[in-house]
Amino acid sequence: MVTLDGDLSRTTWTTPQAAEAAGVTPDVIYQWKRRGKLVPVNRKGWPRYRAMDVLQVEASTRQRAGRTHVTA
């Protein structure tokens, strides 16, 4: 379970954690990475993304699509 507590500008998430927090599948996180919307903060190993970046991309994508809330 991903928590949204603490300093989100310093918190990093793995791809599955980022997907859970954004309410999308890991494939969407990979697409955002390929399209340059998300940039991993590490250069080696499994990619990790800054929590604030993930949430900003998710909000931007939702706004562009005309959705105002996340559906479950």
Rank of each mutant, 00 (worst) to 15 (best):
A65P: 07
R34T: 15
D5G: 12
W46L: 04
E58R: 01
T61Y: 14
Q56S: 04
G6L: 09
A51D: 01
G36V: 08
Y30V: 14
W32G: 10
D27K: 07
R64P: 09
D27S: 03
A65R: 15
K44D: 02
R50K: 14
P16C: 14
T3W: 10
K44T: 10
Q31I: 09
L4I: 08
Q56Y: 03
Q17C: 06
G36L: 07
V28Q: 12
L8C: 02
P47F: 02
V57T: 00
Q17G: 13
T14M: 00
A65H: 13
A59T: 02
G6V: 09
W32V: 00
L8S: 09
H69Q: 01
N42Y: 10
A51N: 02
G66D: 05
V24E: 09
G36M: 09
R34N: 15
M52L: 13
S60F: 04
D5Q: 14
L4M: 13
Y30P: 05
G23Q: 08
V57C: 00
D7M: 10
A21I: 01
R48D: 01
V54E: 01
D5I: 11
Q63D: 15
N42K: 04
A51F: 07
T68N: 06
A65E: 15
R62A: 08
G6F: 04
K33M: 14
A21T: 02
Q17A: 11
L38H: 12
V70Q: 08
R43D: 05
Q17L: 03
V2H: 06
K44Q: 12
Q31A: 13
M1A: 12
T25R: 07
Q31E: 13
D7R: 08
W46V: 09
E58G: 08
Q17E: 15
D27C: 02
R50P: 01
V70N: 04
G45Y: 04
K37T: 12
L55Q: 04
W32P: 02
T25W: 05
R62V: 11
G23E: 02
R34A: 15
V2G: 02
G45H: 02
R67S: 11
P47L: 01
T11Q: 12
V54I: 02
K37L: 14
V54A: 05
R67V: 11
Y30Q: 07
R64H: 14
T71C: 10
T3F: 00
K33E: 15
Y30I: 12
N42H: 04
A59F: 06
T14W: 07
T25A: 01
V24P: 06
Q63R: 13
T61N: 15
A22E: 06
N42G: 05
Y30G: 09
V54Y: 01
T25Y: 04
A59N: 10
